[in-house]
Amino acid sequence: MYKIVEKEHFSENVVKLIVEAPMIAQSRRPGHFVIVRTGEGGERIPLTISAADTVKGTITLVVQAIGESTRKICALEIGDCFTDIVGPLGQATHIENVGTVVCCGGGVGVAPLLPIIKAMKEAGNRVVSILAARTSDLIILEKEVSEYSDEVIIMTDDGSKGQKGLVTAGVESVINREKVDLVVAIGPAVMMKFVSLTTKKYDIPTMVSLNTIMVDGTGMCGACRVTVDGKTKFVCIDGPEFDAHKVDFDEMIMRLRAYN
């Protein structure tokens, strides 16, 4: 079984869980995700692997409680088990030394971003990380991000921490002061859409990790489909990362509301 060995509250609704899953810990790469299920009537929920320890055989998940299933997961305690965890799923992030990379994380999106920041740094890039949230309490993993970033910029909607403003303002300020070769954005769909619109103006390659609704995560159902460059793609097998400038965000945002 997939036992929880560590739990930490990042904020009221965001929890970090370290879970025993030795085979997945060994095979996973940055960008991969898992599908988890809690309880016999549980739903299959996709969650990014934000770190892994191959020696201890554990993976780290950071979960934001937004609905029924994620609330159940956040209520799990040390010693409890997930009923099922399958993975690693999706294509791993393409990591390369391109020069300067700006990594933008919105809300809980910082968790999946962390392994990418780390890998980008290790590949020799200059990494500027921008963490954005509504308010200071919701800024997570600041210490871990700082460890692998040349610079960290914090943006809050209400100005309670770092600079006041949206993530796009932070991105633009960096673009205006230095040459940026790649932008990576992970967070709520709306945030990724606006980062994408911003970088498009400057013609800077941008990569996003899409969090569509999923069921199986193995290409079997098509629930996760998005339109990229006019073609239908399955996020779970073709993604989750795509060229932001080719993604039809409006369609994706619409589809995320299917069950609300």
């Binding site: 290409g219 159902c221 098509g222 489909r225 998005v226 339109t227 399955f234």
Partner: peptide
């Protein structure tokens, strides 16, 4: 496992899904 779609306009609207998704 991989469901086919027809590639016609509007096929990604909410309420349109593969038989695999529905039955699963």
């Amino acid at each position: 496992g991989l469901p086919r779609f027809m590639g016609i306009p509007g096929e990604n609207y909410i309420g349109i899904m593969s038989a695999n998704e529905y039955l699963t």
